[in-house]
């Protein structure tokens, strides 16, 4: 007699990598590494996880890469339909709700991805929305997700929210940090994660979305390898910074 054999097909895998986003008073920074791996093997050293959706919204997707790419494709498709119907870009808070309904529509066969949406709100403030795979979401000032979330998030909590720190007598912590403080924090987060996590490394892509007439532009001058993605300079502007990370 042979025992009955249970067979199962698993349609999911984890592809590593880490993403993060930080909101400022009039800007938003969305970053992700570019390594894609499965187990101990690296599939590619350049697979972007951060995608520009509109002039004022950028989406970072992490988890199961196939689902992630498909999801971004479908979000972009919905945003294009919105443009055709309304002759304008969808506001970021509406994109956030759209992402919730799109994710929850797959409640019983989820997209195995963690999303972080960054950009500029209609009132000109920097915004970050973070999601779980089935669509629960929240607006925050900063969020890390992915393989090195457990390394990066505590660092951000300490440096952005000043958790476990006490202000000097007679002073208080700032609610929002300037861009020239935020960018080095992002870069340090990824170099550190690369050192300590095997699934993080190869390359780093940082998207910076600036509100209309933002003076945070000054903070960008000092950063090398910066490139503007937007065509017009009179509205919201998006820049990308590409950097190398260690490849071992």
């Amino acid at each position: 007699m042979t025992q009955p054999v249970q067979q199962a097909f698993n349609p999911y895998t984890e592809n590593g990598g880490t993403i993060l986003a930080i909101a400022g008073a009039d800007f938003s920074v969305i970053a992700g590494d570019t390594r894609q791996s499965e187990g101990y093997s690296i599939q590619t050293r350049y697979a972007p996880k951060v995608f520009r959706l509109t002039d004022k919204a950028t989406l970072a997707v992490n988890g199961f890469a196939a689902d992630g790419n498909m999801f971004v494709k479908k979000v972009r498709q919905r945003l294009e339909w919105y443009r055709h119907a309304h002759a304008k870009d969808m506001p970021i808070r509406a994109i956030a709700r759209l992402i919730q309904t799109m994710l929850y529509a797959r409640r019983f066969f989820p997209y195995y991805v963690y999303n972080i949406l960054g950009g500029i709100e209609e009132d000109g403030t920097g915004a970050v929305y973070s999601f779980d795979p089935v669509g629960s979401y929240e607006r925050e000032a900063c969020r890390a997700a992915g393989a090195a979330q457990s390394l990066v998030q505590p660092f951000l909590d300490n440096q952005i929210y000043f958790k476990n720190q006490t202000p000097a007598p007679g002073t208080s912590f700032p609610k929002h940090l300037p861009l020239f403080t935020v960018l080095p924090l992002v870069i340090d987060s990824f170099t550190s994660a690369t050192e300590r996590h095997i699934e993080v490394g190869d390359g780093l892509e940082i998207y910076v979305v600036l509100a209309k007439n933002s003076d945070s532009l000054q903070g960008l001058q000092a950063i090398g390898g910066i490139q503007e993605v937007t065509a017009n300079t009179d509205g919201e502007r998006t820049f990308v910074i590409r950097r190398d990370l260690k490849k071992d």
Binding site: Q100, Y104, R107, D132, V134, G135, S136
Partner: peptide, 9 residues
Amino acid sequence: VCIADCQYW
């Protein structure tokens, strides 16, 4: 319990 279920419904 499950945040997405509560938030959505």
